Simulated scan of single mutants.
Amino acid sequence: MRALREAILEAPNFRPDLEITEMIAPMMSAGDYAGAVAAVHALMPGAIFSPSAHAALADAQRGLGNPEQAQRESILAQAALDSIISTGEGTETEPWTVLRTSDAYDVVLASGKTPRSQVAVGKLDRIVCTDSTVWFFDTSNDFART
């Protein structure tokens, strides 16, 4: 998994600031599902481990009437989330490692929680949820340099 994450970081179109949901929202609102699919595909391989990317593709494929492709993308979105969860415990001593901040928010939202605040704590991001749950994420990508 580490080698794949490193390859993604080295992809020419990797963007740590990627916000797929915001980027394709106008297309989705206008019913331009094919445009949304094309826009997300253009971000690959740099967005391959982004849960949001695959969730967006699933929504767009549903909009296009492609339930099998939508299901495949939903599975990939879950696999991306599982990949993040496998990197730690979400604690300060064992944070989850993410490639981009939006991935941290994907984990929080997928858990059914609502983020209330985010603050940097050294090289970690601490996200506090409205129910007082606190999770830590390592967005430094230091693992790629070790």
Rank of each mutant, 00 (worst) to 15 (best):
D142G: 09
I20F: 02
L124Q: 14
S50P: 03
G31E: 11
P12D: 13
E92C: 03
M28G: 02
A120W: 06
D125I: 13
R145D: 13
L4A: 14
S102R: 09
T139F: 01
D17S: 11
F136M: 01
P16N: 06
R72E: 10
T114N: 09
A79H: 12
T97H: 12
D17A: 10
A53F: 02
L18N: 04
L57A: 03
H54E: 04
E22R: 13
L9E: 07
Q61Y: 15
R2Y: 07
D32R: 13
R126V: 00
R116A: 15
A7F: 13
G112N: 06
R72H: 11
R145W: 10
S52D: 14
P51Y: 05
S117P: 05
A55V: 00
T97K: 15
A7E: 15
A36K: 02
L43V: 05
H54Q: 07
I24K: 02
E68C: 00
L109M: 09
R62W: 11
S140R: 10
Q61D: 10
A55S: 12
A77M: 05
R116T: 00
T93H: 13
R5Q: 14
S74M: 13
A47H: 02
S74F: 09
I75R: 10
A11K: 08
V121G: 00
I8T: 15
S117E: 10
A30Q: 14
A34R: 13
E89V: 00
R62N: 14
T91D: 08
A39S: 12
S102Y: 04
A25M: 12
V134F: 00
T101H: 08
V121D: 13
D131S: 04
C129L: 04
D131I: 04
I48H: 07
A70Q: 07
V128M: 05
M27L: 15
H41C: 06
G122Y: 11
V134P: 01
M1L: 09
A77F: 03
D142C: 02
G63I: 07
S50H: 11
V134W: 00
A77C: 06
L57Y: 01
K123S: 14
R2D: 14
R15Q: 15
A58V: 02
I84L: 05
T114E: 08
Q69D: 13
P95D: 08
V40L: 06
Q71S: 12
H41Q: 14
T93A: 12
R72Y: 08
S74N: 10
T21S: 12
I127K: 06
G122A: 11
Q69F: 08
S102V: 01
A70V: 06
D17I: 01
S111T: 03
E94A: 15
P26W: 05
F49Q: 09
H54Y: 03
D106P: 02
V98Y: 02
T133N: 04
N66L: 14
S132Y: 06
A34V: 07
R5I: 01
A42E: 11
D103I: 02
S52R: 09
T21P: 00
H54A: 03
G35V: 05
M27G: 00
I48A: 15
T146C: 01
S86Q: 11
R72I: 02
F143V: 03
A110M: 01
R72K: 12
L109C: 03
W96L: 14
S83H: 11
G90W: 04
A36N: 07
T133C: 03
L99G: 15
Q78S: 06
T101I: 12
G112I: 01
D106A: 15
